[in-house]
């Protein structure tokens, strides 16, 4: 009985379809991540600003992102925007907006703490050598910051990939949705399909995220030495 069940994964194009579904969520994650990194770097540089109002705005932004579940934000954009702004956002578009909004805050905070962790004498030595502010920033500070940022950026990427599984709740056809379709199609031929399909999706996510979190751990260890 169960030996028959696992075959559902390899019937016809089922497995390919699952992979295609996975690609949909991965694409969303990669696009949002790329946008978040760019915007987050700018945000992170602003967050150390001495201006009170800039600090306040950043603080409120971070707190909103920290408190609101991503699914709630997705609902707000997906259902709210359609009604209020009259734009009919597709599930994918709302997902990218929300994940970028969330990722930018996370990335900004990472950049901020990385910038703080650079010792002050690095700036001072740069100036003492007669470098301009721009030179100090781009030649001395940024390269060191990137080294410190890499592990946490990779962790953020795996979180982004994991979080994109939520988009099935706003009607994007991704891996979980494809899995459901396969299960529904083979409901009568293979009743145990749900076990194998969801098990497979579980492993697929693991296969995607594991290398990144491993790499992050290795990099972190390397940087410490």
């Amino acid at each position: 009985m169960q030996n028959l069940g696992i075959q559902v994964l390899f019937q016809g194009t089922n497995f390919l379809r699952l992979l295609e579904g996975l690609w949909v969520s991965l694409r969303l994650a990669v696009i949002s991540m790329a946008l978040s990194v760019v915007l987050g770097i700018f945000l992170g540089m602003r967050m150390n600003s001495k201006k009170k109002w800039v600090q306040a705005v950043c603080r409120i932004y971070l707190e909103i992102v920290r408190i609101m579940p991503q699914l709630v934000l997705l609902f707000l954009v997906y259902f709210g925007a359609a009604k209020h702004l009259g734009i009919n956002l597709s599930g994918e578009a709302s997902a990218i907006i929300v994940f970028t909004f969330w990722g930018t805050a996370e990335m900004g905070d990472l950049v901020r703490s990385a910038l703080i962790s650079i010792p002050k004498h690095q700036y001072e030595s740069g100036y003492a050598l007669g470098m301009t502010q721009k030179q100090v920033f781009f030649r001395i500070i940024i390269p060191q910051t990137i080294r410190r940022l890499l592990p946490s950026m990779m962790n953020l990427l795996t979180r982004m990939v994991k979080t994109t599984s939520l988009v099935v709740r706003i009607g994007v056809v991704e891996v979980v949705k494809v899995g459901k379709q396969i299960i529904d199609a083979s409901r009568f031929t293979t009743p145990s399909a749900a076990f194998w399909v969801y098990g497979m999706i579980f492993l697929l996510y693991f296969a995607v995220c594991f290398p990144f979190s491993r790499a992050a751990a290795v990099l972190e260890r390397k940087l410490r030495d």
Binding site: T158, K162, T163, S165, L166, V176, Y198, I201, F202, Y205
Partner: peptide, 12 residues
Amino acid sequence: SRNTPLLVQLFF
């Protein structure tokens, strides 16, 4: 558990 989404864990 760290490398898989809760949603997928729940579905399983």
